[in-house]
Design a protein around this nucleic acid. Structure first.
Length: 732
DNA sequence: CTGCTGACTTAGCATATTAGGC
DNA sequence: GCCTAATATGCTAAGTCAGCAG
């Protein structure tokens, strides 16, 4: 059935193969690599089936929208059945209703967790009424509800010095969303902050070529400092890095320099390197006052450039600083590592803001590349980066409405998947026996994505990026089939580099049918050939879209991560645990997810040492404990003979001491276990991106664990919506 | 389709800040 | 209070996915 692509492909591989023999970064990374591009043959004669599916999908939708709970609808923004929608103007939401809903929720929350207010507002007990500034009224369509009126305030000045207890937190999640595809009505900001210009090195810091001091032109010198700063980094030992750097560096040299400096290995940057080390040392040694001063300066910049006004609110910007020039550090075996990332000038910058706002001013004597007013996008500033030619953006902070709404929506989509995942699973299992190869491939790939939480796996530009893959781009060389292994049947071994060149290694038993299909897909292929030669992410996602509105490959990752957390929490938490133990359970649940998603990290450099320290502490505590126990016993004995009040009291005290120490010991032991189990696993990524925060919030409420134990300040800001709305009964 | 690219999310590592032990 | 280890934040690379032109 399929063929034709093979010759073409393997030809390509041979060319590529040569420059692709590098080693991986992580010691746990290993497999060989090669290139492969999918051939371009298509086949699309499946109309009837698609139509069928479309119908199915419609049914599915009806099923969903009728299953009752208004809350189940995406983002909860939906009229309850009982309330009539005023006019069908496209905004099918009922404001009034939401309000009443909200009130109920509040009551609930107070009932369950009276401490809540304190928890959330640690610092800003005194929410001052803001001077009202309603010049930003453009958002009629967004109709803030009554209650938000009082809250509506904009602090354009941003002069709040004392702490940060600005306005009362805006609950954007209680407002309506745009339904017309626009992202905002009004946007005003101050533009980006540029890195300081290059400061030439002092005269006594010299660069040597071939043993001889040599003064470099400012342009060449600047690039040289980028390299000098990285001297003790492993990067500078890599051939590609050195080669790329040298090539780009030469472009910045004067013709004179170019003719002299012909070999990197004759370059001596050590003096420069030492200089920078000394500088950063000096920075650390700065006096308190100086540190305070820079801190204040940073705060000033943050207040001026770190916020924008979007619609009626002052919102925090995520990254308002332009990336400074430097040497590109790709991850894994990146063919472009070491290339010069050039300095961004105002002339490279596109500003996005509303027409009727005060436009940001370019630095004196410069101009922006463009000022546009596109409210269909969320970015404030963009520029094109010179390594890959891709666009970089300045966007809002995760705590902003625009990011938060999207995040919330993501979890709602995952929850919709929960309702139909069984049907989808049944379907792909059925498809394993399809007579069409492409359907089988699609079904097996989807099975992997679902079961193993693999990423979709888009095609990548070969030679431009590190050789990494996801599900659809898996190659023959990435899997091994074992009809029998360690007493299990039909085992598939995965070994490939995924995003960020993190190795995915896993052996799992699969169903016989999957196994047989894999054998079939492997027939007559070279190791560099695509495993799924009839599939790509576009085909897969189109299929998924038909199965459920808004469904794409990555929704499975979100869904499986969140549902796993919920299950694990249920399983692992027991009522008699104290708080540290509960947190350990939470971390374990979190860890199960991180494992599923393959979120790894390099073991911290100080891991062994800090583990030893902890062990020492534990040993000491143990000694203390047995000493305390002895004393307790002795006291009891005394009390028995003396039988006076004083000795009775002493017994009590000793008893308490024993308790206290054993509690401390336990806490330490828990900590040790937790840390050991976390050695190579990164919990942060899943917590931040995959786990519906409402699950965690509900868990905290249910067990009386303070939310701060689970989420730090940043995380609480990002998940404010969830903290506000989820009660202990929340079910993902 | 198919390739390209724009917009936006997800990712690990580097650095800064804070907490906790002495 | 100082110093170190732990944690939080910042940074930016590397993905996903959709829409469009050809």
């Amino acid at each position: 059935m399929e063929s034709g692509s093979l010759d073409y492909n393997s030809q390509k591989h041979k060319d590529k193969h040569k420059d692709r023999e590098h080693k991986r970064e992580r010691d746990n990374s290993k497999n060989g690599n090669s290139e492969h591009r999918r051939s371009s043959e298509k086949k699309h004669r499946e109309k009837e089936k698609e139509q069928l599916k479309r119908k199915e999908k419609q049914k599915e939708e009806k099923f969903h929208s009728s299953d009752g709970k208004y809350r189940d609808k995406e983002n909860g923004f939906v009229s309850p059945p009982s309330i009539k929608v005023e006019e069908d103007n496209g905004y099918h939401h009922s404001i009034k209703h939401e309000k009443s809903l909200k009130r109920e929720r509040d009551e609930d929350e107070y009932k369950h967790n009276p401490k809540k207010v304190k928890v959330e507002n640690e610092k800003k007990v005194k929410k001052r009424k803001q001077e009202d500034e309603s010049d930003y009224e453009e958002r009629e369509e967004r109709k803030p509800k009554k209650r938000t009126k009082e809250e509506k305030k904009v602090t354009t000045g941003g002069k709040k010095k004392v702490k940060n207890e600005p306005e009362e937190k805006w609950k954007w999640w209680e407002e309506e969303r745009y339904t017309d595809g626009s992202k905002w009505k009004f946007l005003e900001h101050k533009g980006p902050v540029f890195p300081p210009p290059y400061e030439p090195l002092p005269g006594h810091i010299r660069f040597y070529y071939d043993g001889k001091a040599m003064k470099l032109s400012p342009g060449a010198e600047e690039v040289a400092t980028f390299y000098a700063k990285m001297l003790d980094h492993e990067y500078t030992t890599k051939d590609i890095f050195r080669k790329n750097f040298f090539k780009d560096w030469k472009k910045e040299m004067t013709s004179e320099e170019k003719s002299k400096i012909t070999e990197l290995k004759k370059c001596d940057f050590t003096e420069m390197h030492e200089y920078f080390k000394a500088q950063s040392e000096a920075r650390k040694q700065m006096s308190k006052e100086e540190k305070q001063k820079t801190k204040e300066e940073n705060e000033r910049i943050l207040q001026e450039y770190g916020y924008c006004v979007m619609d009626n609110h002052r919102e925090r910007i995520g990254n308002f600083r332009i990336e400074p020039p430097g040497l590109f550090r790709g991850r894994g075996d990146h063919p472009k590592m070491g290339k010069l990332k050039r300095r961004i000038r105002p002339e490279d910058i596109i500003i996005n803001c509303s027409k009727d706002s005060v436009y940001p001013k370019p630095p004196p004597g410069t101009r922006w590349k463009e000022v546009r007013h596109d409210n269909k996008v969320t970015w404030l500033v963009s520029w094109t980066e010179n390594i890959q030619g891709s666009i970089k953006y300045i966007m809002l902070n995760p705590s902003s409405r625009i990011k938060g709404e999207k995040d919330w929506q993501k979890y709602e989509t995952a929850r919709r998947l929960k309702k139909c995942v069984e049907r989808i699973r049944a379907q792909y299992r059925e498809d394993w026996r399809s007579k069409e190869m492409r359907i089988r491939q699609r079904a097996v790939a989807l099975y992997f994505i679902d079961k193993l939480a693999l990423r979709a796996g888009n095609e990548k530009d070969e030679g431009e990026t590190a050789d990494t893959v996801g599900c659809c781009s898996l190659r023959v060389e990435h899997i091994k089939l074992y009809p029998q292994l360690d007493g299990q049947d039909y085992v598939v071994e995965f070994d490939f580099l995924g995003k960020d060149s993190i190795r995915y290694y896993n052996k799992i038993p699969v169903e016989k049918r999957v196994f047989k299909n894999l054998q079939l897909f492997l027939e007559n292929k070279q190791s560099e050939d695509d495993l799924f030669d009839r599939l790509n992410t576009s085909i897969l996602n189109k299929h998924l879209q038909e199965l459920m509105d808004g469904l794409t490959a990555k929704v499975f990752r979100t869904y499986n991560a969140s549902i796993t957390l919920q299950q694990q929490l249920k399983e692992l938490t027991s009522p008699d645990e104290n708080i540290p133990e509960k947190i350990l359970s939470y971390n374990r649940a979190n860890r199960a997810v991180a494992l599923l998603c393959n979120h790894q990290r390099a073991p911290p450099k100080t891991f062994e040492k800090s583990m030893q320290n902890l062990q020492t502490k534990i040993d000491e505590k143990k000694k203390q404990l047995s000493a305390a126990k002895k004393e307790h016993k002795a006291a009891k004995a005394d009390a028995k003979t003396l039988r006076d009040e004083k000795s009775k009291k002493a017994v009590e005290m000793k008893k308490k001491a024993v308790q206290r120490i054993s509690e401390q010991l336990m806490k330490l032991e828990v900590q040790a276990t937790d840390r050991e189990e976390n050695k190579q696993i990164a919990l942060g990524t899943s917590k931040l991106n995959y786990l519906d925060p409402r699950i965690s919030v509900a868990w905290c409420k249910k067990w009386g664990v303070p939310i701060e134990k689970i989420y730090n300040k940043t995380q609480r800001e990002k998940f404010a919506w969830a903290i506000d709305m989820a009660d202990e009964d929340f079910e993902f």
